[in-house]
Computed example of a mutant assay.
Amino acid sequence: MTSVGVVTPFWLDRPPSEALDIAVTADEAGFGTLWIGEMATFDAFALATAVGLRTSCISLKIGPLAAGVRSPVALALGLSTVVATTGRPAGLALGASSPRIVTEWHGRPWEPVRRMRRTVRDTRAILNGDRVDGFRLQQPVPGTTISVAAFGPAMMRVASQVGDEVVLNLVSADHVTTVSKALHGPDGVPTPPVAVWIPTALDPGPDTLRQLRSQLAVYLSPPGYGEMFTALGHGDLVARARAGAPRSELAQDIPLSLIEAVGAIGSADDIARRVDEYFAAGAGHVGLVPATAEDPAGRRLLTTLSPLLTKGRR
């Protein structure tokens, strides 16, 4: 069974409060899942609580959060608080993040693989009601799904071994196929299942394309992403990014073909077909990241796409 959800984006050129408006729009449009990440605006658990109190039925997936920043106790307390105060089902997603965020912003050591294994193991145990290092959660949430965001081979192995779901962000359908085959579950179904986030824009104009290009420019140089973009034929951009070219300069040179390779843009039918391509590649869930530069809160996108993408799915 496939499903389509919505991701709360944190566009740098949009007001932070738009995240709440997107949540309300996604709920009213009938999408079943809302992903709530964390960047430089809101605490994810606080935002998820606000979303739960302002929406009616959409389930919440909190993260991916940097596994090296919060302890398993803090993660379990945050998830439990959201569920208890909103009455809304919620899952948790964790990712390695980056040395800049983990070490520079939060002052934690950068040891992504070891930290991910331990964090998933201990957080799952605490949420199930077990005592871990002397701590027991008074309001456990047994059976909480813990998704793991992955890209490189080391974290992909960890995600496949300890995660309930593998999360991929900003990847091509061919990359999803590669990951799905590597997970080689029974009957060709990946185990664990794969979720993928894709930037999405309905009939994008120049401001929307500028927004999408600016986001893509951030991902040109990191390991894994750079290699994927190179394989897609954009090695010159990757080389310039890794040589220190300004992000604004790189963004101007990102071609439409690269946006199309890792996203879903165009008419409603174009987007629906693109989502189906990701499902055909092996994804079990697609999270739409709505572009909002010319479509505040993604209202036109989400209300138009919901009948095409959620019928028979949640």
Results as ranks from 00 to 15, higher is better:
P142M: 09
F135V: 15
A150S: 13
R121P: 00
R118T: 14
V141I: 13
F135G: 01
G152D: 15
P140V: 13
L137W: 09
V148E: 08
A150I: 09
T123F: 06
R131L: 04
N128G: 06
I126W: 02
S147L: 10
V132C: 05
Q139D: 11
D122L: 12
G134H: 09
P153E: 11
V141C: 13
G134A: 04
F135T: 12
G143Q: 13
R124E: 02
L137K: 09
S147P: 02
F151Q: 13
L137M: 04
G129P: 10
V141K: 05
G134Y: 09
R118E: 15
R124D: 01
T145V: 12
L137S: 04
P142H: 07
R136G: 07
D122E: 15
D133Y: 07
N128T: 03
R136Q: 15
G143N: 11
T144D: 02
D133K: 04
G129K: 05
R124I: 03
Q138R: 14
T145C: 05
G134I: 02
D130G: 01
A150N: 08
F135L: 03
Q139G: 00
V141F: 02
L127Q: 05
D122T: 01
V132W: 09
P153N: 04
P142A: 07
G152R: 15
D133G: 02
T119H: 01
D133V: 00
S147R: 12
T123I: 05
P142V: 10
I146S: 05
V141T: 14
T123M: 08
R131S: 15
V120R: 07
V120Y: 12
R136D: 00
Q139P: 00
P142T: 13
Q139I: 07
D122G: 00
